[in-house]
């Protein structure tokens, strides 16, 4: 029974992706707006670049290092952003989720396909930035180790999986509480500070670092970024990836559990 479900999901996945890509292309304007909402790393780039210019390197980061760091952060954020919590929240409140529950495919898989399908468009938009980054920051600021580049790809994929699991959990909370988006708000606040989105994590006081490394936030942004700009050795990278894997498994288990429990107690309006 389970196996049949997985096989069905795998068969349906390419079609779901195609639909999603077509939708992303159809709503181009909305897409550009979304792109503009993630300009925070570029603003942070300007800010920290100025800090470094004014008083010299800061915690081992020169102006060029900050440029490389925040451009990489911009690209990683583009590739790993998910918005499933908002979709799910709206569909649960408005009763639209009934449609998804009726389909012979797990709703989380369908949501995942929708969120993945925008990646080609995002790549198209963020690749020029990545190339510009390489050009501006120079080749020294991107890791040369092919193993580390491979780990970067892995950790970015992991960051997407982790983000999706978390956002799906928060979205599914709408089955139980009214203000699940307030939880998302809370989450984003923590994410901005603890993931390296505002400040590279190595600039935080040393006594905070071990805690920050263990929390799930770093795996969602800081880890892939530090990997790409060559700030981590192989051992450190593997250590980070192990923590990331743990959080991915934990968050997906939680998402499946919360969604399942919520769907069981859910009764749509008019149903």
């Amino acid at each position: 029974m389970r196996g049949a479900g997985v096989a069905r999901a795998l068969r349906a996945f390419p079609s779901l992706l195609r639909v999603g890509v077509a939708e992303a292309v159809a709503y181009r304007a909305e897409f550009v707006v979304w792109l503009l909402t993630t300009t925070m790393p570029l603003i942070m780039l300007a800010l920290w670049g100025e800090v470094a210019r004014e008083g010299g390197p800061l915690g081992g980061f020169s102006g060029a290092d900050f440029t490389a760091y925040f451009l990489a952060a911009f690209v990683v954020r583009q590739l790993t952003g998910v918005w499933v919590a908002w979709d799910m929240n709206r569909e649960i409140r408005e009763g639209l989720i009934s449609m998804r529950l009726l389909r012979p495919i797990h709703p989380l898989v369908a949501y995942a396909a929708e969120n993945l399908a925008v990646l080609p468009m995002r790549l198209l938009l963020s690749l020029p930035v990545a190339l510009a980054a390489l050009f501006i920051a120079g080749r020294d600021h991107v890791t040369h180790d092919p193993a580390l580049l491979g780990l970067f790809c892995l950790s970015t994929a992991g960051a997407w999986l982790l983000g999706f699991g978390l956002m799906a959990t928060i979205g599914a909370l709408a089955f139980f509480i009214e203000s699940s988006l307030a939880v998302a708000d809370l989450w984003f606040g923590l994410f901005f500070v603890c993931s390296g989105y505002f400040v590279p994590l190595s600039l935080f006081p040393a006594w905070l670092r071990p805690t920050l490394d263990l929390l799930p936030f770093r795996a969602m942004l800081g880890l892939p970024v530090e990997l790409l700009i060559g700030r981590l050795g192989r051992a450190e990278a593997l250590h980070g990836l192990a923590i990331e894997l743990f959080w991915i498994l934990a968050c997906w288990a939680l998402a499946l559990f919360v969604f399942g429990a919520g769907a069981r107690r859910y009764s749509a309006y008019g149903a």
Binding site: V33, W34, L36, T37
Partner: peptide
Amino acid sequence: NLAFLFGSV
């Protein structure tokens, strides 16, 4: 998502 754009700017 206009509100988000507004907020982020």
